[in-house]
């Protein structure tokens, strides 16, 4: 390892300065703003202490709706995403032909703009008139499926979650596959000789030997799940249905109003602080829950 103070300072300075001034300072400042009643840029700020937090947690049903929606994405969406991603990854890893082709197609939604994908799902997949799903179900004569209203108030949240899972699965398939690739093939051969089926091989070899990758994948999922914003925000029309509010969407709606003139800047910032708290708590919990002795091989 070398050391060269002048080079070190010179090389670190731009990134550190920008990161400090435009990332860390605003992040810290958010805590300060969240203690104010502040109804618009250029307006008076009134110090209210913890009142925004008290209000959020005691008297705001919309906040709780957005919080539980976020939690549903985190837990239910996470469980579904990892189940599907593991299934697809194991299948891709089973020596089939066209592995790279399938992997690329599964990953592809990741590179497409979310705003394009919301249009795709709303108009091309779910829409009762133009949607592929209702029309396909009608084509095969399944009436209940054809009449199912994907975008109605009762169903729209789960419809959105399906779309989000479809987008995210590809990323985790790739990550898990890379973890599987590190596992030496001899382990599987030995297991097969002993007569272990695929199910046993997965729980006995695959999962334990790539536990570190799984842990990272779960942490990455929790971070991205808690800040879900772009998909629900653009999924509906000019007003976002509150059934789709995540904490991120609710923050935006309270701070910038979408098409209604709401400018509760202090209140909105308090939601952001709670999002950060949720990220930290979730990461700690996941790391604790998933801690295992490192397996050597």
């Amino acid at each position: 390892m070398k050391t060269n103070p002048r080079l070190i300072i010179l090389f670190l300075l731009p990134a550190t300065a920008i990161y400090l001034a435009f990332f860390l300072v605003p992040a810290g400042w958010a805590f300060y703003y969240s203690a104010f009643d502040w109804s618009g840029f250029g307006e008076e700020m009134t110090f209210v202490g913890f009142k925004n937090y008290v209000r959020l947690m005691t008297t705001d049903p919309v906040f709780w709706e957005s919080f539980f929606n976020t939690l549903k994405i985190l837990v239910v969406g996470g469980a579904a995403t990892f189940t599907i991603a593991f299934t697809l990854a194991v299948m891709l890893n089973s020596g089939i032909k066209g592995k790279k082709f399938f992997r690329a197609l599964i990953f592809m939604p990741q590179v497409i703009a979310v705003i394009a994908l919301t249009t795709l799902w709303a108009f091309a997949i779910y829409s009762p008139t133009t949607g592929v799903l209702p029309n396909f179900f009608a084509l095969i004569g399944w009436e209940a499926g054809a009449d199912y209203l994907w975008m109605s108030a009762d169903h729209v949240f789960w419809s959105m979650l399906i779309a989000i899972i479809w987008i995210e699965v590809g990323f985790y398939v790739v990550l898990l596959l890379a973890g599987m690739d590190k596992i030496p093939m001899e382990y599987y051969e030995a297991a097969r000789i002993e007569g272990a089926n695929m199910w046993r091989q997965f729980w006995g070899i695959t999962l334990p030997l790539m536990w570190d990758v799984v842990t990272i994948a779960v942490v990455l999922w929790s971070i991205s799940a808690i800040k879900v914003f772009e998909f629900p925000f653009a999924f509906m029309g000019p007003t976002t249905d509150s059934h789709l509010y995540t904490m991120g969407v609710y923050l935006y709606v309270m701070g910038f109003g979408k098409r209604d003139p709401i400018f509760q800047l202090g209140y909105a910032t308090a939601i952001g602080v709670l999002m950060l708290v949720l990220v930290v708590v979730t990461s700690v919990v996941i790391r604790r829950a998933m801690r295992r002795d490192v397996l050597q091989y």
Partner: peptide, 14 residues
Amino acid sequence: EVSAGYKWPQAQQT
């Protein structure tokens, strides 16, 4: 009945 599942501007198209 289908109107509950319309995302603007699907209904006005009808």
